[in-house]
């Protein structure tokens, strides 16, 4: 089987390398990708969405339908991992590996965690809400926020983290983030615009259409952030404890 797999890999590599002969030059301003749609986004992006960061505007407004489903992909991942791994039945645990118990020890780790985690969470919020102006947004902010909880449970213990952020709460956050995103789409629908046409929020918020798009982007980024944060924590809880939520890494 192995030589066969190697032949297939080699063929794929040859095919992909062959495809590069035709491609436009690296960072070529005349390439189709830079001339077809990008100028439109760059020129009109700010006037239509009041968002200086073009990436955010494209991600969360022009192609927000994609982004909705990307956050749903993340949500689906946590749901799948939970369905497959989580065991509530009390039985013989499959896990027989050595797991160090560090209850009540290691002041250094905890001290460092105490000083780093708040800063990390503030930074996550900054990344999330500053996405209009600088690189960042819901996905990145959510991941950093989730990482702070993972750090907490690494430095203390899984149980400690689960007391702070309960498993049920995590699942609710997973669904509510995506629900916030889709709900905003539905509100726009109810206001007489198309699904996810944030301009429909203008009437509710009392601002112009352009500003309403900007606010809509902010709200959906927050939804994405909540989902991603909760999913990261949920994945860690399930995978690190092997599904029994007893003790983790």
């Amino acid at each position: 089987m192995k030589p066969f797999a190697r032949i297939i890999l080699f063929l794929c590599a040859v095919m992909m390398l062959t495809a590069t002969v035709d491609l436009p030059d690296w960072a070529d301003p005349g390439s189709p990708a830079s001339t077809h749609l990008s100028p439109g986004f760059i020129e009109q992006g700010y006037h239509e969405t009041a968002t200086p960061n073009v990436v955010t505007a494209v991600l969360a407004d022009y192609r927000s339908y994609d982004t909705l489903f990307e956050s749903v992909v993340v949500f689906a991942a946590s749901l799948v991992v939970m369905l497959v791994l989580r065991r509530t039945s009390t039985g013989t645990s499959r896990i027989k590996h050595f797991r160090p118990k560090r209850e009540g020890r290691d002041t250094i780790l905890r001290g460092a965690a105490q000083s780093i985690i708040p800063v990390m969470q503030i930074f996550a919020l900054y990344v999330l809400f500053h996405g209009h102006y600088s690189p960042g947004g819901g996905f990145q902010g959510g991941v950093i926020f989730g990482a702070s909880f993972i750090l907490l449970s690494l430095c203390y213990s899984l149980k400690f983290a689960m007391q702070r952020f309960k498993e049920k709460m995590v699942l609710i956050c997973c669904a509510c983030g995506a629900l916030l995103y889709a709900g905003i789409g539905a509100v726009c629908l109810a206001m007489g615009w198309n699904f996810l046409g944030y301009a429909g929020l203008a009437g509710l918020l009392g601002v112009t259409d352009v500003m309403a798009r900007s606010h809509g982007i902010l709200a959906v980024e927050a939804g994405v952030g909540i989902t991603v944060m909760a999913v990261m924590v949920s994945l860690y809880y399930d995978l690190a404890s092997g599904g029994d939520m007893e003790e983790g890494l």
């Binding site: 991941v143 989730g146 990482a147 993972i150 690494l154 990261m232 994945l235 860690y236 995978l239 690190a240 983790g248 890494l249």
Partner: peptide, 9 residues
């Protein structure tokens, strides 16, 4: 960051 931790876990 996160996926490495999760893979190790």
């Amino acid at each position: 960051a996160v996926s490495t931790v999760i893979i190790v876990a």
